[in-house]
Simulated assay, not measured.
Amino acid sequence: MIDHVAYDEAASVLSISFRGTGRYLYHGVPRAIYDGLCAAESLGAYFNAHIKDHFRCERDPARRRFGPGA
């Protein structure tokens, strides 16, 4: 489900790349949440419990994709 994660501590923005759907930015994410994600046994389970629907999210505006919903 999750391919790659990155964190911008100065901006408190978590970037998550998902297989098949692209990269999304989560705003206002504390460092502890990023650290927890990195240490989680299951990235998907941690994401669903602690990130999804808890932070403002947007599709990465710098990434252009072709296809439905692009």
Rank of each mutant, 00 (worst) to 15 (best):
I2L: 10
I2N: 06
D3P: 11
V5G: 04
D8M: 02
E9Q: 13
A11E: 15
S12L: 03
L14A: 06
L14I: 00
I16M: 10
I16A: 08
I16C: 12
F18V: 05
F18M: 08
R19L: 04
G20A: 04
G20K: 09
G22C: 08
L25Q: 03
Y26K: 03
Y26T: 12
H27A: 11
H27N: 13
H27R: 14
G28R: 11
P30A: 01
A32Q: 05
A32K: 03
A32Y: 00
Y34V: 02
Y34P: 03
D35H: 06
G36L: 04
G36W: 03
A40I: 03
E41F: 08
S42F: 12
L43N: 13
G44W: 02
G44K: 13
G44S: 13
A45N: 12
F47K: 10
F47G: 10
N48P: 02
N48F: 11
A49C: 13
A49D: 15
A49W: 10
H50M: 02
I51F: 05
K52M: 11
H54P: 03
F55H: 06
R56Y: 13
C57L: 01
C57G: 07
C57N: 08
R59W: 05
R59N: 12
R63E: 13
R63I: 15
R63V: 14
R64D: 07
R65A: 14
F66C: 09
P68K: 03
G69Q: 04
G69A: 03
G69E: 05
G69K: 00
